[in-house]
Design a binder for these strands. Structure first.
Lengths: 143, 143
DNA sequence: TTAGTTGCAAATCGTTTGCATCAAG
DNA sequence: CTTGATGCAAACGATTTGCAACTAA
């Protein structure tokens, strides 16, 4: 948590932006989340703490957290964006069950290596990536 | 092209759906495309041939092509969906330049193997995947 | 006091849908 | 004829934005 707060503080002062109590409430709720969360979902959680915070502010702050480097954004097959933070959450990829919607996270260094090889071949400098495996999870395939 | 048309014909008769001249126009324009295309872009191309075709029909047919197995859909970081066909286009992944927007396609069997290993570990049955590497292409990094 | 932050509602963007009409089989 | 295909405009869901009021520094 300390590292994330620091990251945000740095970003804010660098860009001449401000802290605010609502921004803090949103950050706290966001960092409390373990997995992915949509703006809508985060809005609900935040509203348990402070019902005066509107959805627009959630979007504005998620964008800010993203720009500050403490949130990642992904879009799966459906429409809405999912956000997740980096606190206790280094990079990983996703297995997504198309039947029940379950999302499993995994890490695999082999894949990262192979990616570097590929990038080298195309003289490409990788800054980030996403790998998503779609299919059926064990529960759903045994049904 | 023959294979794709056949695929569509099979799908149509299986589902008791019909051919139509507009559907053909859309299919032809779609198969002519080499890379990814958005619904909007395809609409423009189709309209050069037949300006009476509306965007809703483009969406309806892209969905149909997708269900019939002759189109793939992906969403990159931004909102809109991109479609691509399987004619001369077997599965591949993408390198995406964040500066100029260039999209390079690549194939890598090693990665596919590793994916299967990961899926096995989680008793997951993979039906599809997406791998996107974001970064800077050679041109943009030399500027 | 100056500029960033927020709520609200309206606007926007990509996509889907209801309905009346048209056309394939 | 029967039912799928289509155009149009309205509806939609997610996200963004303009504006006036608010608040951090």
């Amino acid at each position: 948590m300390y590292k994330e707060k620091q990251l945000l503080t740095n970003f804010l002062s660098e860009k001449n932006l401000r802290h605010s109590s609502k921004r803090n409430t949103i950050l706290k709720a966001f960092l409390k989340e373990e997995g992915h969360i949509t703006a809508e979902e985060l809005h609900k959680k935040v509203n348990e703490e402070d019902p005066s915070i509107g959805i627009a502010t959630i979007y504005r702050n998620l964008k800010l957290f993203h720009d500050a480097g403490l949130a990642r954004m992904s879009r799966f097959e459906k429409g809405e964006a999912h956000y997740e933070h980096n606190y206790l959450h280094t990079h990983h990829d996703h297995l997504i069950c198309l039947k029940c919607g379950k999302i499993i996270e995994f890490k695999n260094p082999e894949i990262e290596e192979t990616q570097e090889k590929i990038a080298g071949k195309h003289k490409f400098k990788i800054t980030s990536h996403r790998l998503e495996l779609y299919g059926t999870c064990s529960k759903c395939s045994s049904k």
